[in-house]
């Protein structure tokens, strides 16, 4: 230990006998946070970052699992193919529709539910647990469950729609090309409302109650109180959750893979489920990665915005 040259910068406080030199102490001090976070970081790098880079390289290579001679670089060939791929352009359009409709419905119903649960009432605890229960249902089971509900053999929904006059005979909307997308969207809304409700409820409960009392004394009505107190307080939470959730839902392929696997005729295929189908069914890893790279670039611009927003909000809070 004492073999280290006595750097004048480090001997300014002379080390006592038997004490470690300040340089080593500094080193130990500086490395401490790394020791605590290293195992997690190593895993993240090995299982997420390395495959990410590998995946990006696949986008420019011919990687097909069933072809042992594949693996060579093909340049931009996948992207030329992609530009002519009607299924891909359809999937891009479907992604916007799927994400927009799901986020819109989840958010407004979730906000409504949060407002309902914000008031104290008898049995609120149990009501809250029951309302949030769909969140705990595994996504594959939500998908199957709703697919069964839409199935005219065992599900009630087609029969109810006939009695309401929405349908002439009980049919499965999941096999109707014009309606099929509503199936996964409804399942997604059912499954995702609790997420918004929970987040917004937490924000609602942090609003100081005396603000409402003061406003009521000043004669503000319920609607006025909502728009001048509740909404401004919720705004940051709403902005962040909606932005993050948009990214998450646009990547969320489980329900579609389970309920329709993109069919009928690719009418419910979103980009994420298209990537999965290319990799899982066609085993064409190169093309799947090229599609994934396009999705990544589209999401990256969006994500940068969110990271900046989060940082600035954290600093403020």
């Amino acid at each position: 230990m004492s073999a280290l040259a006595p750097d004048p910068r480090f001997v300014s406080q002379a080390p006592g006998p038997g004490q470690r030199s300040p340089f080593l102490r500094r080193l130990a001090h500086a490395s401490e946070p790394w020791l605590y976070s290293a195992p997690a970081l190593i895993l993240i790098v090995a299982v997420m970052l390395v495959p990410l880079v590998l995946g990006i390289s696949y986008a420019f290579r011919d990687v097909r699992l069933l072809n042992p001679f594949s693996g060579g670089y093909v340049g931009l060939q996948h992207f030329h193919e992609l530009a002519r791929d009607k299924a891909f352009w359809g999937a891009l359009k479907n992604t916007l529709w799927w994400t927009g409709a799901s986020v819109f419905l989840q958010f407004f119903l979730g906000l409504f539910l949060a407002l309902l649960l914000d008031k104290p009432f008898y049995g609120r605890g149990i009501a809250q647990a029951l309302c949030f229960l769909p969140w705990a249902v595994p996504s594959f089971l939500s998908g199957l469950n709703w697919a069964w509900l839409f199935n005219p053999v065992v599900g009630p929904l087609p029969h109810w729609m006939v009695s309401l006059g929405l349908m002439s005979q009980p049919e499965n909307i999941l096999s109707d090309p014009t309606l099929a997308m509503w199936g996964p969207i409804i399942a997604n809304v059912w499954w995702g409302i609790p997420f918004f409700a929970i987040t917004l409820l937490a924000a609602l409960q942090s609003i100081p109650r005396d603000l409402y009392e003061a406003a009521a004394i000043d004669g503000a009505g319920g609607v006025q109180r909502f728009f001048s107190i509740t909404l401004p307080f919720l705004a940051p939470t709403i902005a962040i959750t909606v932005l993050l959730r948009t990214v998450w839902i646009s990547n969320f392929a489980d329900l579609i893979v389970v309920m329709t696997s993109g069919g009928p005729a690719n009418r419910t295929q979103i980009v994420a489920s298209y990537i999965f189908t290319q990799a899982f069914k066609k085993l064409d890893f190169g093309y799947a990665s090229a599609v994934a790279l396009v999705l990544l670039v589209l999401l990256l611009a969006y994500s940068m915005l969110i990271v900046l927003l989060r940082q600035s909000l954290l600093k403020k809070g």
């Binding site: 993240i44 495959p51 990410l52 999965f276 990665s289 999705l295 990544l296």
Partner: peptide
């Protein structure tokens, strides 16, 4: 940097990793 790395992993589509992880 660590926080940004961890946030990044929450942002990109995990479905991207299906093929490379299988290969690895």
């Amino acid at each position: 940097l660590i926080v940004a790395l961890m946030l990044l992993t929450q942002m990109f589509p995990l479905v991207m990793l299906v093929a490379p992880i299988f290969k690895m």
